[in-house]
Each structure stands twice: as C-alpha cells, then as structure tokens.
Amino acid sequence: MFNRLRATLSDFFQQADLVLLGLCCGCTLFGMVLIASATRYMGTGSMIRFVGVQGAAMLIGLVAYVLLSMVNVELLVKHWKLILAASVVLILLLRTPLGVVRNGNRAWLEIPHVPFSIQPAEVVKIAFIILLSKQLEWVKDRRRELKSLGSVAGPTGHLLFMVGLIYVVSSDMGSALVYVFIFVCVALVAGVAWRWFILGGGGMAVGVLALYFMGKLPSHMADRFRVLFDHSFDPRGVGWQQTRGLLALGSGGWFGQGLFQGTQTQAGRGALPERHTDFIFAMIGEELGFFGCLLVIVLLTAIILRCLWVARRATTDYARLVCVGIAGMLIFQTVENIGMCLFVMPVIGLTLPFFSYGGSSIVTLYTAMGIVSGVKKRALMNWNR
C-alpha cells in the first residue's frame, strides 16, 4: 500500500500542473494573512479560528486537487444522472433545518461537527460545468452544429432549471448569475450561434426593465442597481457597504497604510463591512495600497490564463469546455467582487476567489483546479514543451 501511494504521488509530481497548484497555494496563503488582519478586531480567538478554518479547507482542497488530477473527468460524467440528482438534493437541503439564513439568503448548510458552513451553490457549480460541457458536446456530435432552436433548447433548459432552483430555494441571485456567465462562456466556445446570445441577453434585459417599471422587481434588488448610478442614494442604507468599501480602497494610496494598520480594517464592527469576505479587496487597498491590489489581480489573472492555456491544449472538446467553464467561473467572481468594491457593480454576495474567507469556496476552487490539472496531465504527451 505504501509503495502504491508513493507511486501515485510520484506520478502526480511528474505530470500534474504544479504551476497551477503553486499559484493557488500562493493566493490562499496570502489570503490567510489578509484574513488574519481583517478579523484581528474581533479578538485573537476569532482571528485564529477564521485562519484555522481557512487552513483546514485548504488542506482538504489539496487532497481534492491531487485526487482530481488522477481521475479522468470524462469517466465521471458517465454517471451524470447521479451527479445531477446529488446536485438537486444538496440544494434542496437548504429547506431543511440544516439550512440557515444570512443576509436575507438561505444559502448555507450548517452540519454538526463540521467547522465551516457549506454553500451548496458553490459545490454544485463544478457539477454544472461538468454536465453542461458534456451536454453541449453531445448535442453538437448529434446535430453537427449549435445554431438551431432544437440544438440550444436542451442546454438552455438545463441552465434555467439550475438558476430557477437556486433562486427559488435560497434567493441567492449572486450565485445564480455565476451559472449564467459559465453557460455563456461554455456555449460560446462550443459554437452556439451568436444570435441566441443576442436574443437571450435582450430578452433578459427587457424582462428586468419590465419588472422594474411595473414595480414587480424586489425593492432590494432594484436599489442595488439604482445606487450604482446615484451614489448619493441611501448612503446609510443600501449604499453604505460600497461607500465604506470605496473609502477604504482609496485611502491606501500607492503602498497602503500597512498590514494590520488599516484605519477601517482595524476599527470595530461599524467600519468596513464584511472585510474578510465580500469586501476583502477594499481591505487590501487600504492596507497594501494600489500595488497590493495589483498583485492580487496579477495572481488571479495568472490562474485564469493557466486554465485557458490548458483548455487550448486539451485533447478533447469536452475537456476544453470544462476548463473554459472553470475559467469563466473565476472571471465572473473576480470582476464582480472587485467591481463591487469599486462601486461599479452591484453587491450580490460573491467573494474574491482564493482570497476571501470561505471553507466551501476554497474546497470547490481546489477541486476545480484539480480537474484542470487532470486535463493537463492527460494531454501532456501531446504537447510541444
């Protein structure tokens, strides 16, 4: 058994994507330092707990990375019915006593003896990418193209089902929008005709505007968009988080006020909101300044580009689509989170990948990166290095 384990690890270090792993670990460790600074005001005990949970999630994620690097995801997708059923059940568990409400969304599961909450929409994103990619590949193989209504109806129905389920069960529109962007990225690379994106995007825009003018759009959702165009709108209410975040981000200047030295970051609860999760980028701006923010953006961009690099060299269309879907997930969350802190995107509760606190987010990210590593491993012999 020991020899088999040693052989497996030797194979991993020889063929897995260690560059991608190094980038992910670097971001997570950097993020743990930032989380320590962001939670210091709560007391030493709380700070240690947050950092400890993040570290434990990273260790679980590393195991997932190694395992997924060894597994062929194309073999896993053969059990698509089981994967889909498990995804639906995991989301529906939010309606059981295990589901808890935070910030108006029933989006987390608290399981006894598990040190961190589980966000089903985070975990199910990986299943959605795997199944959607296979669905698009299957439709394209049968129809030879993805231009007719019949060819796009099935994948679109898959998207609407998952988005509708997540929103109805948890009211988590932020996570639902990630699924939409993943769908756009994967469908675009798969070859879906542009007219369907134009029709779909136009239809969504018309629908939202119609709901807004009819007064049917939930007020909290409408206000989050309204405040983007009028920063003076309700600065002590719906605009409070972003106003404080923008102040913190701008106060750091070029080099920041210093780690563990930020005025708002180190102040009490009434200062910078959600500084270890949603608004960690604002905290980075305050304590590490422009260059600290730039470093974070460069690191996340490197991870995204690595995923796309692997996608371009994948040996099958399916593997290529999976890598693109994972890259799309990272792109949307990164842009939305940074835009939220810059007061140019609405607050929808999305964290900054690898840097923000969140156990289920970290495990999901490492699982996704493990899948990318597995694609690279199986294509290694065909590459010109």
Results as ranks from 00 to 15, higher is better:
residue 342 L to S: 08
residue 179 Y to M: 13
residue 183 F to P: 04
residue 252 G to P: 00
residue 41 Y to D: 05
residue 281 F to G: 10
residue 251 S to G: 11
residue 201 G to R: 06
residue 237 G to I: 00
residue 141 D to Y: 08
residue 151 S to P: 02
residue 301 T to G: 13
residue 275 R to V: 09
residue 226 R to Y: 12
residue 41 Y to T: 14
residue 283 M to T: 15
residue 361 S to F: 06
residue 353 P to V: 00
residue 298 V to S: 13
residue 12 F to Y: 07
residue 381 M to F: 13
residue 311 A to I: 07
residue 255 F to L: 15
residue 117 S to R: 10
residue 376 K to V: 06
residue 255 F to N: 15
residue 300 L to M: 14
residue 152 V to C: 09
residue 38 A to C: 08
residue 361 S to Y: 06
residue 119 Q to H: 08
residue 41 Y to P: 11
residue 331 I to D: 12
residue 103 N to Q: 14
residue 163 V to R: 11
residue 110 E to F: 02
residue 326 I to G: 01
residue 28 T to K: 01
residue 304 I to L: 11
residue 249 L to F: 03
residue 42 M to E: 10
residue 276 H to E: 15
residue 246 L to A: 04
residue 87 S to N: 02
residue 192 V to I: 09
residue 220 H to M: 04
residue 348 I to P: 03
residue 24 C to H: 04
residue 374 G to Q: 03
residue 310 V to I: 12
residue 95 R to V: 13
residue 105 N to V: 10
residue 383 W to F: 11
residue 156 T to L: 15
residue 110 E to C: 03
residue 334 T to R: 01
residue 293 C to E: 10
residue 131 L to F: 09
residue 195 R to Q: 13
residue 360 S to T: 03
residue 67 L to I: 12
residue 166 I to H: 05
residue 49 R to Q: 13
residue 237 G to D: 10
residue 39 T to A: 06
residue 255 F to E: 14
residue 287 E to C: 06
residue 352 L to W: 02
residue 345 M to S: 04
residue 344 V to T: 05
residue 205 A to C: 00
residue 4 R to V: 02
residue 258 G to K: 00
residue 207 G to P: 03
residue 284 I to K: 06
residue 223 D to A: 14
residue 159 L to V: 08
residue 156 T to Y: 02
residue 279 F to M: 11
residue 133 S to M: 09
residue 320 R to W: 09
residue 284 I to F: 06
residue 260 F to A: 04
residue 58 M to E: 05
residue 183 F to H: 03
residue 185 C to A: 08
residue 118 I to A: 05
